Simulated assay, not measured.
Amino acid sequence: MTFQEFCLLLISVLTSALGQLFLKLGATKLGKVDAGNAVSHILKIVLTPELLMGLFCYGLGAIAYILLLTRVSLSVAGPSASIIYIFSVLMGYFIFKEPIPIYRAFGLGFIVFGVVLVVWKAS
């Protein structure tokens, strides 16, 4: 993966991770959805700035990912995009004070190791 391709991947992952952050902030603002309030929540989604920003970030991430797919194979881009999980867990930990149990930390380590193996090019 070239530096430009890596930058596209990073932009895609970071904007998608920001999208997740804003979606979580908006979802927290909405509260829990159940059968009795589902319709009103759907209407509130359109009016919640955090949710709209989350969708906008996801859109930017998708555009960067599409540009990445014009340059690298799906078998490299797809697994590489899984590093978004690391950012999601870190945002959960630092912003929402969610714990990171040891088994989750090991899982994240396996993801990083797997991405390195996928993008590795033997000289």
Rank of each mutant, 00 (worst) to 15 (best):
V72P: 02
I45K: 00
S40N: 04
F96Q: 10
V72M: 06
Y103I: 10
G59A: 12
V13M: 09
W120H: 15
S16Y: 03
R104H: 13
A27F: 10
I84N: 02
A38R: 14
M53K: 11
F94Q: 03
L60N: 09
S123V: 09
G92F: 05
L74F: 10
K32F: 05
A62S: 12
F113S: 14
F56H: 03
S40K: 08
V112F: 14
G31E: 03
I100G: 01
V76W: 01
G19M: 00
L52R: 09
I84F: 09
E50T: 04
R104N: 12
I84E: 07
T48D: 06
L25E: 08
R104C: 03
G54T: 11
G107F: 03
C7G: 12
T2E: 13
Y65E: 04
E98P: 03
I66W: 12
V118G: 01
T48Q: 10
F22D: 03
K32V: 11
I11N: 00
E98Q: 11
N37C: 08
R71G: 02
G31V: 07
L68S: 05
I86Q: 00
I95H: 06
P49R: 08
F94V: 10
K44V: 06
M53F: 14
S73C: 00
L67V: 05
V89I: 13
I45A: 09
I100V: 13
L10Q: 06
A77E: 01
S16N: 14
L117K: 11
I95L: 14
Y58F: 15
G31F: 04
M53R: 08
L43Q: 12
Q4I: 14
Q4H: 08
I100N: 06
K32Y: 01
F56R: 03
Y85S: 05
E98M: 08
C7M: 13
S40F: 04
G107P: 04
M91D: 13
